[in-house]
C-alpha cells in the first residue's frame, strides 16, 4: 500500500455519533432508575428492600430460564415454545432427586442440604439438556426457516411433554419444600432478607458471569456470537454452524431445567404446566432484551422481576399486566429491544 493511501485509511477515525455511543449505555441505567423510582414510590425502606430482593431473585431465575432461549432465538431464528417443557421437566426431575433425599434436605447441615440440591440441579440440567437434544433433532430440525410451523410444532411438543409429566409423576401438583438451609430469613433491623432469594441472586449472577466468560473469552463463545450475527458467514469460514446450533440448544435446555428447579423451590410447589406459566415472562424478557442478546436478557429479566414485585405492592390490580406494559413501552422506544444484535 502506498504511504499516502495508507495514511488516508488510518486517519479516518471510526467513531460513532455521540448519541449512538451514549444511547448504547442507557439500557444499563434502567435497573438503577427502577430501584430509585421504586424507593420513592414505596416510601418505606424495609419494604422496598424486601421487594427489591424478591424482584432481583425473581429476575435472576427468569434470566436463567431465558438466557438459553434468547441464544436459540438469535442464533437459529427458532420460535421455540417448547422451551417451557424443559422448565417443567427440570423441576420434576430435580424434585424427584430432592424428595428421594428427604433426610438430607431436612438435616440441619448446609453440606447435607447442598448434597441434595446440587445433584438435583445437575440431574435436572442433564435430563433437560438430553431432551433438548432429542427435541432439536426430532421436532425443531424439520421446521427450520418456517416460523408458523415452528410455533405449532413446538407448542405441540410442549403439550406432549406436559402430558408425559402427568403420566410419569401423576396429575397433581407436588409440594417441594426447601432444604433447611434455604428456609427462613436473616433479620437486619426492620429488614427481613429471605435466604433462598439471596442464594437465587448469587446463583443467577454466577450463571450470568459464566455465560459472559464463555461468550467473551472462548472460541466457542466467539462462534456463538458470530453465528447470532451472521450464521452464513460463520459457515463460509469453515465452521459447521449446525454443531453450534445443537450445542446452544442443549445448553439452553439445560439452563431451562436448572431454572425449573430454582423456580420450583421458589414457589415450593410444582405442576406440569408451570413451564407454560413462566414461559410468558420468559418470552417478554427475551423480547425486551433484544433477540440473541445475553446482556439485554439479563437487564430485561431484572426489570421484569422488579416491576412485578413493585406493582404487586403498589397497584396489585396492575401487577398481572405490568410486564406487558413494560414490553410495549420498551418496544415503542427501541423496536429491536434494549440491546439488539445487528443481524445480517
Amino acid at each position: 500500500m502506498t504511504d499516502q493511501t495508507a495514511s488516508q485509511t488510518e486517519t479516518a477515525a471510526p467513531r460513532a455519533p455521540l448519541s449512538e455511543r451514549f444511547g448504547k449505555w442507557v439500557p444499563y441505567l434502567l435497573v438503577p432508575v427502577f430501584l430509585i423510582l421504586g424507593y420513592l414510590l414505596i416510601g418505606s425502606g424495609p419494604t422496598w428492600a424486601t421487594l427489591t430482593l424478591a424482584g432481583l431473585a425473581m429476575g435472576m431465575m427468569i434470566f436463567v430460564m431465558a438466557s438459553g432461549l434468547t441464544l436459540v432465538f438469535g442464533l437459529m431464528d427458532i420460535l421455540n415454545f417448547g422451551h417451557g417443557a424443559f422448565i417443567s421437566i427440570g423441576a420434576f426431575v430435580g424434585a424427584t432427586v430432592l424428595l428421594s433425599a428427604g433426610g438430607w434436605t431436612g438435616a440441619d447441615s448446609v453440606l447435607l442440604n447442598l448434597g441434595a440440591v446440587l445433584p438435583a440441579m445437575l440431574a435436572a440440567m442433564m435430563v433437560a439438556g438430553g431432551l433438548g437434544y432429542v427435541f432439536e433433532r426430532v421436532i425443531v430440525r424439520p421446521v427450520y426457516g418456517a416460523h408458523l410451523k415452528q410455533i405449532l410444532v413446538t407448542m405441540g411438543g410442549l403439550i406432549v411433554a406436559e402430558e408425559l409429566i402427568r403420566l410419569i409423576w401423576g396429575p397433581d401438583a407436588i409440594p417441594l419444600p426447601r432444604p433447611e438451609a434455604f428456609t427462613g430469613a436473616w433479620i437486619f433491623g426492620m429488614v427481613a432478607i429471605e435466604k433462598y432469594r439471596v442464594y437465587s441472586v448469587i446463583l443467577g449472577l454466577i450463571i450470568f458471569l459464566a455465560l459472559l466468560w464463555v461468550l467473551g473469552r472462548t472460541r466457542t463463545g466467539l462462534l456463538i456470537r458470530a453465528g447470532v450475527e451472521n450464521g452464513e458467514m460463520v459457515e463460509a469460514l469453515g465452521y459447521r454452524i449446525r454443531l453450534i446450533f445443537i450445542l446452544v440448544f442443549v445448553a439452553g435446555s439445560a439452563l431451562a431445567g436448572l431454572g425449573g428447579v430454582m423456580w420450583g423451590l421458589y414457589e415450593q410447589i410444582i405442576t406440569a404446566q408451570m413451564g407454560l406459566d413462566v414461559l410468558v415472562l420468559v418470552f417478554i424478557v427475551v423480547i425486551i432484551g433484544g433477540l440473541g442478546s445475553v446482556h439485554g436478557c439479563f437487564i430485561g429479566a431484572l426489570l421484569v422481576g422488579l416491576l412485578a414485585n413493585y406493582t404487586g405492592y403498589l397497584m396489585p390490580k396492575l401487577a398481572l399486566g405490568s410486564n406487558i406494559l413494560l414490553m410495549v413501552a420498551v418496544l415503542m422506544w427501541r423496536p429491536q429491544g434494549l440491546l439488539p444484535i445487528n443481524k445480517q
Binding site: 472460541r219 466467539l222 462462534l223 456470537r225 458470530a226 450475527e229 451472521n230 452464513e232 458467514m233 460463520v234 463460509a236 469460514l237 469453515g238 465452521y239 444484535i341 445487528n342 445480517q344
Partner: peptide, 20 residues
C-alpha cells in the same frame, strides 16, 4: 458483497475466528 463482518466483534475477534 456486504463484507459479512461480525460488527459486534472486535477486529481482532473477527481475525481470530477466520484463522480456523
Amino acid at each position: 458483497e456486504n463484507m459479512g463482518l461480525f460488527g459486534n466483534l472486535t477486529v481482532q475477534e473477527n481475525m481470530v475466528l477466520a484463522a480456523r
